[in-house]
Amino acid sequence: MTIETLSIETDNVNGTLRRIWTIIEQRGWYVRSLLVEEVESGARTWVQVSPEDGRRQIHTLRHQLEKLVNVRSVELLERSRVQPSVFEEIPYAEAI
């Protein structure tokens, strides 16, 4: 399974986490795990995502998250060693 790991630093504003999650799923990715911690005057979210199919590019998702108003930076921490399958990813429910 393809899993990419992003580190997202944001302002500490209500709704930001929901907005991030919305973008991830809206743009064809699944949230596999998520951890949030408070940092100085903001929050850092580590999120692991995997694509719905082989046509999704993590760099495009990164830029789509960077555009969000309360997002300060998005870092791609670990690239998956597995290329996305052209045909199918492991379904969400099974991964859970």
């Binding site: 709704g15 907005r19 919305t22």
Partner: peptide, 14 residues
């Protein structure tokens, strides 16, 4: 409203 519109706004506030 904040949630319903979230995927179709550039930004939103309550």
């Amino acid at each position: 409203t904040f949630g319903i519109t979230m995927p179709v706004v550039k930004h939103s506030y309550i």
